[in-house]
Amino acid sequence: MAEQTTEHHNPHVEVPNEHIGIPGYLGVFAVLVLGTILTYYVALMDLDWIFPGANTLVALGIAFTKMTVVGLFFMHVRWSPRLVWMSAVGAFFWLTIMFAYTMQDYLTRGTGFFGH
């Protein structure tokens, strides 16, 4: 079933993929540069008044946005068949697994669980 989708979309992908054209790509590039500048300035601010570690979260949020934009437009996931979408989402899911299971160590260290 999945591969039928692939075949169905194949001719579409073959077409030179100026999906958003040069201006579109420049727009994406601008978003990335803006994100970088934003990351720099946020790093200089102390956001701990929101909650501890807010800086990290904001930086990660910006990074995630940039990553999504690159994936969707530069890497053409936006116009790709469902199998490619699944692979892209699957990869992020795997990244989440790594973070989650690593954090279950860090967040439970020294909490007094089992004596120390």
């Binding site: 701990d48 008044w49 909650f51 501890p52 020294g110 909490t111 007094g112 120390h116």
Partner: peptide, 19 residues
């Protein structure tokens, strides 16, 4: 030692050896 302390910015920690 071994009591819970409240940290600036919220959150708590147990004042163990590592702390």
């Amino acid at each position: 030692f071994n009591t819970e302390v409240h940290l600036v910015g919220g959150g708590t920690a147990v004042a163990d050896e590592d702390y």
